[in-house]
Computed example of a mutant assay.
Amino acid sequence: MASSPGRPRDRSVDERISRAALELLREQGPEAVHIDGVATRSGVARTTIYRRFRNREALIAATIALFGEEPFPAAELPVEDKLRWLLEQVRGLVEEQLGRGVVAAVLADSDPVFSAALRARLTRRLKALQGQIDADVAEGRIRRGADAEALAGLVFGAYLGELLQYGRARPGWADGVIDLLLRGIRVPSGS
């Protein structure tokens, strides 16, 4: 956010707004993240929030931007470790950053503004993931034609399927998923 001329911004106010938006998102879903709701939760005046965010869409985008993005694993790591990292990223996104209720809201598309903003962020991350996959293809660690979007979809789907079936990820579950994924993307021996 660019500062406007005048008094410097109070970082504690920015932090209260951010914290309130994240709490509302996790506790009540994306529909609860709006200027009035954040003002009530944070104790910050609506006018102050509007000085920082021109509308709800800007507030939603800023809230999504608060989600951490771990750097991709080192290029030299084995593909198995990279898949384990990807599974952990999906788990962290669902369980720690978004929360299960938000995932359900996105699946139901109950808040199209939020869903579109989240999908845009995930698409940017997938483009970066495709670069990682392309590097592994070039190094001969992954077969040609591996599709980052399909791989990410399989990982997301596997995690959500595990939650639907068991309510949690069972011990050893990730090992089974990684084994199946490796069978599909690994370069056949002798190639």
Rank of each mutant, 00 (worst) to 15 (best):
A148T: 07
R19N: 07
A174N: 13
A39H: 03
K127Y: 00
L107T: 05
A138F: 01
Y166C: 00
A108V: 07
L66P: 02
G157D: 06
P171R: 15
E80R: 15
D179G: 05
G140C: 11
I35K: 03
A117F: 01
E139M: 02
A32P: 04
V33N: 01
G172D: 05
G157M: 07
A2T: 02
A75W: 01
R16Y: 06
A135H: 10
R143N: 08
I185W: 06
A62K: 09
I185T: 06
Q165S: 03
R170N: 11
R143M: 02
A2M: 12
V177K: 13
H34C: 09
G176E: 03
Y159S: 01
S115E: 02
N55D: 15
G184H: 15
R9H: 09
L77H: 14
L59T: 12
S18W: 00
P78V: 08
D36F: 03
V79E: 03
P30K: 07
M1Q: 10
D134V: 02
A138Y: 01
P30Q: 08
S191R: 12
S42A: 14
Q130F: 01
G145A: 08
R54K: 15
R183I: 01
R119W: 02
E69V: 14
A135I: 03
I64S: 07
E149R: 15
R9G: 05
M1L: 15
T48E: 05
